[in-house]
């Protein structure tokens, strides 16, 4: 049954593609063998469904009439230049990276897309062979369930609605999906707040519903989108001076610059000027324990001490001495 439908759809495609003129319905019914024995009603229903299937696959089935001034029955055709992949040439090196690119996506929904794309390139005479790049294995998968519906809506430029952070209902125009640091984000126009916003996909709960027609908005250009993404990301703009024990806290040390210490430091410590994000600075510094001491500013030093007293309040009440910790 499925094979018969495939055969019918391929034959319909070939017929409409081979004709420069619009092919009238009657002619289609007569020519495609599988339509011939159907009743009128059955033919109409099947043909309508077949046309929809072809269009859903991206095959441009046009409707029109050959006679401009006569109201005859509409015909159908597929314009070859709209159907065919335009000429494209890839160098050997480009074909090689395309071959590697085809192995990147791990989740079936997207992997199928890249495989189909590669099959088309092969059919256009490209020979993607990634074997010279075998020391590289880039793999990508997005775990969040919201990714597939958001990707589709973004491509179709359709507005979506979802529940964010367990409660708020958000209506947004999806502009770009951003994959960074093992996390996925949506850069979108928030219709309720009338402003661009970034949403974390892992905080979208439940279904993403699309509504409204496709092509219902036009995203800003790439430069503006880049600016939005930049504005909405975490910035490091808080200058601090830290004493860091050598070989420790590399993430802070590498970001900083050695500086002459304002006071005498314990042996093995050096002073660094580091730029941090103001909101995260206290927690980040505290995470390194005694390997990092705040030198400046004094307010930050006090805040870190207060934070560490909080650690003691939670974990340190039972024992007065620190020996137990050092036995580990």
């Amino acid at each position: 049954m499925a094979a018969r439908k495939t055969e019918r759809l391929v034959n319909l495609t070939i017929l409409l593609l081979s004709s420069r003129r619009y092919v009238p319905r009657a002619k289609i019914r007569e020519t495609v063998e599988a339509y011939r024995d159907l009743s009128d009603e059955n033919f109409n229903r099947t043909f309508e469904r077949d046309k929809d299937d072809l269009r859903a696959m991206g095959i441009p089935v046009e409707t029109g009439s050959n006679e401009r001034f006569f109201d005859d029955e509409p015909g159908y055709r597929i314009v070859r230049t709209d159907f065919e992949l335009p000429p494209c040439e890839f160098t050997g090196e480009e074909a090689m990276v395309l071959g590697l690119a085809a192995t990147v996506w791990q989740q079936a929904s997207v992997a199928d897309q890249t495989r189909q794309a590669l099959a088309k390139l092969r059919a256009a005479g490209v020979d993607p062979d990634p074997s010279r790049l075998r020391a590289l294995a880039p793999r990508l998968s997005v775990r969040e369930a919201a990714f597939d519906p958001l990707r589709e809506a973004m491509i179709e430029r359709q507005t979506v609605r979802f529940t964010y952070k367990g409660g708020q209902q958000r209506t947004v125009q999806p502009w770009r999906l951003v994959l960074r640091n093992s996390n996925s984000y949506l850069l979108a126009f928030d219709c309720d707040r009338q402003a661009p916003r970034i949403f974390k996909l892992s905080r979208i709960a439940g279904a993403v519903s699309r509504f409204g027609p496709p092509d219902s908005f036009v995203p800003p250009d790439n430069e503006a989108l880049g600016d939005y993404a930049e504005q909405l990301s975490i910035k490091s703009d808080f200058d601090v001076v830290l004493a860091i024990r050598s070989e420790r806290a590399p993430a802070l040390r590498r970001r900083g610059e050695l500086e002459h210490s304002p006071i005498e430091l314990p042996s093995g410590f050096e002073a660094y000027r580091v730029r941090l994000n103001q909101n995260n600075a206290v927690a980040e510094i505290a995470s390194y324990g005694p390997d990092v001491i705040v030198l400046e500013p004094a307010e930050l030093r006090a805040a870190v001490l207060a934070h560490l007293r909080g650690v003691l309040a939670v974990h340190g009440e039972a024992r007065e001495l620190s020996e137990t910790g050092e036995q580990r």
């Binding site: 696959m57 991206g58 095959i59 709209d82 159907f83 065919e84 992949l85 335009p86 990276v97 395309l98 690119a101 085809a102 990147v104 996506w105 997207v110 897309q113 890249t114 189909q116 794309a117 590669l118 099959a119 088309k120 390139l121 059919a123 256009a124 880039p138 990508l140 990707r151 589709e152 491509i155 179709e156 994959l179």
Partner: peptide
Amino acid sequence: RPMRFTADEAVSLLVAL
């Protein structure tokens, strides 16, 4: 000649690149 790429095929391959 093969068919044109669908939008989804093109977008997926562009990320992979």
